[in-house]
């Protein structure tokens, strides 16, 4: 690797307020320009809306089939299960807005060698790669997810409580962080295996499991969805908290998993960059 390409890491959290301010200003610029670019394709909004509505109708249909003649699914009532589906839809919107437009490009950067330019920028490369774009196409899913969650919460037996809402939101964010870290780590794999361009799509397909509460699965799958592919922390745990039935061990588990996976994605990226040899060398 030529000396000029040795990645330079300006400290992300260090040296006082100046750095944070600079990053915030960059973020504002990044998002404004990418929204402007994306809104050129207005027909996309209609397609996206149709696709979200269709998928939601289908998911509700399958959920209603699973509930036909039953009044619970793994101990969850219909309205409680709606909260889980709502959180899934919300995270799907988050994926379309923030994760997909950024992280799916890492592979192209590696393949075409444009990662060199990213590494030369006087900004943290993980920050740039993760937040460069913001796409409006996830907004329909975000809105649908929120309405589904509200509907489920209002109709569920326990109703809405402030502290559950706060805890639920915190756990939802930790779920989103886990999701981000998984996506980022998978996308970072492209440093070694250039052609994994669809590894992230695979993740999207397997996360479908998060549409249903964890207790609806047999014990073996439950373990997989907690420790291997932690969908439990993404949808079930925040739903439990929102519904006011959070348990201490799951809350701690979720926060720990978020911290570990975030730190893990950071370390993994630094490790991956040491193996990056640029496109033509």
């Amino acid at each position: 690797m030529p000396l000029a390409l040795v990645p330079w890491h300006p400290p992300l959290w260090g040296h006082g307020g100046m750095t944070i301010q600079r990053y915030a200003r960059s973020l504002g610029l990044f998002w404004r320009t990418s929204i402007e670019a994306e809104t050129e394709y207005q027909l996309n909004m209609l397609l996206e809306l149709l696709s979200v509505l269709g998928n939601l109708a289908g998911s509700l249909f399958v959920l209603s089939l699973l509930f036909s003649g039953e009044n619970s699914l793994g101990g969850w009532s219909w309205h409680e299960a709606l909260v889980v589906l709502g959180i899934y839809t919300l995270l799907d919107g988050f994926t379309s807005c923030c994760l997909q437009p950024n992280l799916s490009k890492i592979v192209n950067h590696v393949q075409q060698g444009t990662l060199d330019f990213v590494l030369l920028k006087p900004i943290d490369s993980q920050f740039w790669l993760s937040f460069r774009c913001l796409s409006p196409w996830g907004i329909p899913a975000l809105l649908m997810g929120l309405s589904l969650i509200s509907l489920g919460l209002l109709k569920s037996a326990r109703g809405v409580q402030l502290e559950s809402l706060l805890l639920g939101t915190a756990l939802l964010m930790s779920g989103a962080l886990i999701l981000y870290s998984l996506w980022f780590a998978l996308a970072a794999l492209s440093i070694w295996f250039v052609k994994v361009w669809n590894a992230t799509e695979v993740l999207r397909y397997t996360l479908v499991a998060g549409r249903y509460p964890l207790s609806a699965y047999p014990a073996a799958l439950r373990a997989v969805f907690t420790f291997v592919l932690p969908v439990a922390f993404m949808t079930t745990v925040p739903s439990q908290a929102l519904l006011g039935s959070a348990s201490l061990e799951w809350v701690l588990g979720s926060l720990t998993a978020a911290a570990i996976s975030l730190l893990g994605s950071r370390l993994f990226w630094q490790y991956a960059l040491r193996h990056y040899t640029s496109a033509s060398s």
Binding site: L65, G69, K195, N198, T206, A209
Partner: peptide, 29 residues
């Protein structure tokens, strides 16, 4: 390697099998 990943992404019916096993709706049908 990529095709192996694609093959892995086809597990949806198996995930659904897990959910259906836990619901009594299939026996009812």
């Amino acid at each position: 390697a990529e095709i192996a990943l694609w093959a892995l992404s086809g597990v949806l019916p198996l995930i659904m099998l897990g959910v259906w096993q836990g619901s009594g709706a299939a026996q009812r049908a």
